[in-house]
Design a protein around this nucleic acid. Structure first.
Lengths: 254, 254
DNA sequence: TACTAAATGTCGGTA
DNA sequence: TACCGACGTTTAGTA
């Protein structure tokens, strides 16, 4: 793990270091005054301002201002970074094909450039996802209702994969759609589509039930469910959800 | 615009600089070996590894590895950053309430810390959005079909706001749902909900038409539309979309 | 590669 | 603040 840093480099210096960093597969940050042009699925243009540019060896680029979780402009992985000096500015361009997209960042001033040698970026395991809720339901089908018997998960249908499919105590087919958080009209619509698909599969006249399993539901979604004769059952994904206490308290240092 | 950089600082040094940077409202980057714990709407835990932590004065935090556009962990704006030294590690914690969420980053080694003084982050104007498509349709209603007359945009309904509402040459109500890109089943469902809502508003038996205006449509979505007696019309948002040539060619520097 | 839906989605507008 | 839908969504899983 190393970090090579240039303070207020001349554009030529920055360029050399950038190209070396790309070759090494480093993670690079650039901070300075720049303009940003994007063209591809959409297009945007950003006037001069102070921004942080992050360039990853997998081709991702991120342009961050001092606000917001979302980068003001970006390029997804799979792009290719190139750098050049043009018209007295340092230009960093990330290009990808399919779709054809170009991100152009032009620095009039580079305050700092740093190249970090990185090794291994493990991916996260998140707890409390819809998949966890599914495990919970399969382990305890009574969460849906007494007598519910799950027969399949991710069951294919004409309308797409059904989270959990089963039968109720009376033998009627039941489509269960799981959501890890409070749901709106879209989820009700999704469930309705799946129920319709199963109704087309089953013999004419078979009653197919639909259950939206989610912590809570908006009024509009509830009305939609009622319209379609569908049901809401309250349940949450296990654990993780809630207090936000990453670990026990201790005061901040000083 | 300034940058204060510490190389391989002792945790205490890093802590002082961090707190000073928070006070100044600086944008901070930390690179080093750290673990990450998140707890809130969900939860996750990440073992030791080399990562880049970005702390923004608006409360946002981003933990980036060397891969991916999406941070491996994060905290949205509105959080509060605090730092401490505990058990021989530098701990940076971002906390927010509503929902209660905590992000805990613990560095065993800090390779580099930089505090950037930033001023003013203008927001981007994107060209080629759904809003632009709406402008296009209102300016040229024949895009929907000859004789279409738009009466309202963002028209309120029982099922939510309708992008464009109008009447066809025969005086029948038409619901138009706009999408800037190729659509799937969800968009078809959305249009169906809006059409149903208008049918409830209109006198019994009134035929209400639904048009999904989008560049293209998947098979499944097309089948859903057919099921509901709805239509697809091909159209794209104006400009921006396409070649990905941010500006004319020139080779990269060397 | 295309389709389908999840996501700690985030973000903006509105009631 | 909650609801609602767009987003250059991104990402993962599957056919």
């Amino acid at each position: 793990m190393t970090a090579t840093t240039l303070h207020e480099p001349a554009h030529r210096e920055a360029l050399w270091e950038l190209e070396a960093a790309f070759d090494r597969g480093d993670l690079v940050t650039l901070f300075g005054t720049c303009t940003v042009e994007y063209d591809g699925r959409a297009a945007s243009s950003l006037g001069p301002g102070a921004r942080l540019l992050v360039l990853k060896p997998d081709g991702s680029s991120l342009v961050h201002t001092d606000e917001g979780r979302t980068p003001v402009n970006w390029q997804p992985p799979g792009s290719e970074h190139r750098a050049a000096v043009r018209d007295g500015r340092l230009r960093v361009r990330s290009v990808r094909t399919s779709p054809a997209e170009t991100l152009d960042v032009r620095f009039s001033v580079v305050e700092q450039l740093t190249a970090y040698g990185v090794t291994g970026g493990r991916s996260v395991e998140v707890i409390g996802s819809e998949a966890d809720l599914k495990e919970r339901v399969l382990a305890d089908p009574a969460l849906v209702e007494d007598g519910f018997e799950p027969l399949a998960s991710e069951r294919a249908s004409d309308a797409g994969p059904i989270d959990v499919f089963g039968r109720d105590a009376a033998g009627r087919p039941v489509v269960v759609e799981l959501k890890r958080r409070r749901v709106g009209p879209d989820a009700a619509g999704q469930l309705a589509r799946y129920v319709s698909a199963i109704e087309r599969e089953e013999p004419d006249g078979t009653e197919v039930r639909g259950v939206l399993l989610a912590p809570s539901i908006t009024d509009r979604a509830r009305a939609l469910l009622a319209d379609e004769g569908l049901e809401h059952v309250a349940a949450e994904p296990p654990a993780g959800n809630g207090d936000g206490d990453a670990d026990a308290a201790d005061a901040d240092g000083s």
